[in-house]
Write a protein that binds this DNA or RNA. Structure first.
Lengths: 192, 192
DNA sequence: CACATATTTGAACGATAGTTCAAGTTGTAC
DNA sequence: GTACAACTTGAACTATCGTTCAAATATGTG
């Protein structure tokens, strides 16, 4: 009847709709910022009536929470993949960060908007924190120093901000160099 | 008549009102986030009618721009003061950053909200960028390495984020240690 | 005094917001 | 078929929004 793994096609469609609405929400955030997210703009983006948006997300807050969760999970998955599969994990991280300047800019922008939102809602903090914890775990594969881990995590975050807001140089080599510097690798391998 | 240094008491009162409205705006941002800023909430906070808010700031955008400019300038002034007057400039920066956990939390939160806003408005980027450039200048007093400067700037930003969103440890010593790490000081003086 | 300029006020307009709801449709179980 | 649950729809309610405006007050100038 109502078990978790039901194959009820109605519920399956419901889950799909839910995902579609979240996707439309992220599109709106990327285009107009978190301030542009309303039940109506999201519904229009998804091509559905307004009341269907509220059917799946009773309040606008629920929708934003779901969107943040989704985008954070996607980002976290990327990092986990680097940890598990990349040989040079620091370089993998640098590539991921450098993406924020190119194709991944919209996504990174959305994540910043939503994480800023999280600063004001304690319920969202654990989700926003997960990204940071995963970067820390990646860092622990590169060094034993706790302060080096902290510096790398902070620098990673700061680099993303710089790329998004300052249009800082964002080629992988540059990011990689700065990450190495934060990690404290010997000078002569960093300086030109 | 209309020169800059007029002592016209009417204009003086106008400037004071303008400052009051900006102050009220920042209070609203600190309490409810940038999304909570409306002409009405600001007017209520300032104890004035709505139309007076629009008299000084024709559009809501003008008001947000003015508020961001104000908060960014205050922060920049703090950094400049450290550069010009502190002996241990890195420690001064660490103290400033650590403030974000205590009395300066609201202001730091407001700055993040408003700088996130800047990501979507090119006109605001120069203002948001100034903070970063001043930190870089401070860093250049501590090192000759360009990558060390970049790492310190990025780490400073990331530490603020961590303190605001993750409730990361924020005592001055800890922040100072991480900043030193990013700067690349010899290991033995950093590790415990 | 009159005259001009700057500030202040309350009311109003049109637009859009979140949310609710009763009615309709589709799919599942019996 | 009937009964039931999940999904979908359009319309509506109330609230708040940004902005405008004419009138009132205060201040400076002659």
């Amino acid at each position: 009847m109502g078990d978790d793994t039901t194959t009820d096609r109605r519920k399956a469609r419901g889950r799909k709709r839910r995902a579609e609405i979240i996707e439309a929400t992220l599109t709106v955030v990327q285009r107009d910022g978190a301030a542009g997210v309303t039940h109506r703009t999201v519904a229009k983006e998804a091509g559905i009536p307004v009341s269907l948006s509220t059917y799946y997300f009773a309040t606008l807050d629920d929708l934003l929470v779901a969107a943040l969760t989704s985008v954070a999970e996607a980002y976290t998955a990327r990092i986990r993949h680097i940890i598990d599969h990349d040989d040079d994990k620091l370089r993998g991280l640098a590539e991921l960060i450098a993406e924020s300047a190119g194709p991944g800019r919209d996504r990174a922008l959305a994540e910043r908007e939503l994480s800023t939102l999280a600063a004001r809602r304690p319920a969202l903090r654990p989700i926003a924190r997960r990204w940071r914890e995963n970067v820390a775990e990646l860092a622990r594969h590169c060094t034993d120093s706790p302060s080096a881990v902290a510096a790398l995590v902070a620098a990673s975050d700061g680099l993303c901000t710089a790329i998004l807001i300052d249009n800082a140089p964002a080629d992988t080599d540059y990011v990689h160099t700065v990450l190495q510097q934060a990690l404290g690798v010997p000078r002569e391998t960093v300086e030109q």
